[in-house]
């Protein structure tokens, strides 16, 4: 889970979930606590799905929030 997706690709990560920003990967000081929580849950759920997904090449798991 990282913000600099292209660097994750360069170093060989195979399952990549994008995060929100460098200093707060799973937070956003501009958003309400509830919105931040929803975003964090969503992206961590994507990471959990990624662990359960067979991939053949480096794969980006898109996020919706």
């Amino acid at each position: 889970m990282c913000n600099l997706v292209n660097i994750a690709r360069t170093v060989g990560s195979n399952r990549i979930v994008p995060t929100f920003a460098v200093p707060y990967p799973l937070g956003n000081p501009q958003a309400s606590a509830e919105e931040q929580w929803k975003m964090r849950m969503h992206r961590v759920e994507r990471a959990v799905q990624a662990l359960q997904t067979d991939v053949q090449e480096q794969t980006l798991f898109a996020v919706e929030r």
Binding site: V22, P23, Y24, P25, L26, G27, P29, Q36, W37, R40, M41, R43, V44, E45, V48
Partner: peptide, 23 residues
């Protein structure tokens, strides 16, 4: 290498322990 203000207020935005416990 990054501004620590938000992470120090809530370290779970960097290591999502709270979300993992919820799951």
């Amino acid at each position: 290498g990054y501004d620590p203000a938000v992470a120090n207020q809530n370290p779970n935005v960097v290591v999502p322990l709270d979300a993992i416990r919820e799951l």
